[in-house]
Simulated assay, not measured.
Amino acid sequence: MIQQELIAADCIVVQKPGAIVSDMNGEKVMLSVENGKYYNLGKQGGRIWELIASPIAIPDLVSALTAEYDIDRETCERDVLKFLASLQREKMIEVTRR
């Protein structure tokens, strides 16, 4: 059994290929070709999805988001890690350690 890498602040994340993404009224919606499920990422989740199109370290992802949104770093990191964990459970991202 393959064990998934736990997501932590010292990880690098990137989208896995195989998702069809569309913008609907400013929110990202996605179809996973692999598991046949639809997802509504919302505006902020959609922005995270855009930022992880290329491999990005979580601290850099959090910095980009705190520069764009009115949110403190600690709250942002906690929310980002939670969101990425849900994407990981759905096999939508790849996670590696730095």
Rank of each mutant, 00 (worst) to 15 (best):
G26D: 02
I7V: 10
Q88K: 14
Y69Q: 11
R98W: 01
Y38E: 04
C76H: 10
Y38W: 09
S63G: 14
D72V: 12
G42W: 07
M92C: 06
Q88T: 06
P59E: 08
D72H: 11
P55N: 08
Y38D: 04
T75P: 04
L87R: 00
I58R: 03
L61N: 04
G45A: 13
D10A: 05
R73E: 14
A9M: 02
E68M: 10
A9Q: 01
T96D: 09
M24F: 07
E77I: 02
R73L: 00
K37L: 15
L61F: 07
Y39I: 10
G18Y: 05
K37G: 05
R97F: 10
I71Q: 11
I2T: 15
G26P: 03
P17Y: 04
W49D: 06
I7Y: 01
G26R: 03
V33R: 13
V33H: 06
L41S: 08
E90P: 00
P59H: 08
N40G: 09
A8E: 04
I56C: 07
M1V: 10
A8Y: 04
I12S: 02
I52S: 09
I56L: 14
A64W: 02
A8L: 06
M30W: 01
M1K: 01
A57E: 08
C11D: 00
T66K: 13
L51Q: 08
L6Q: 12
G18T: 03
C11G: 01
C76G: 08
R89T: 14
G18K: 07
P55T: 09
S63A: 15
I93W: 06
D10L: 01
Q15W: 00
A8V: 09
E34F: 11
N25W: 05
E34D: 14
A9K: 03
Q88F: 01
E68H: 10
T66F: 04
A85V: 04
D70H: 08
E5I: 12
Y38G: 09
P55E: 13
V33N: 05
P59R: 07
E90T: 01
L6A: 06
S32R: 09
V33L: 13
D10I: 00
L51E: 11
F83C: 05
K91H: 12
D10M: 00
V62L: 06
K82G: 03
Y39W: 11
D70Q: 13
D60E: 10
N35P: 02
V21N: 03
D72R: 10
P55V: 12
G18A: 04
L84K: 06
R89N: 15
E34A: 11
V13H: 00
M1I: 11
M1N: 02
P17K: 04
I2R: 08
F83D: 00
S22G: 03
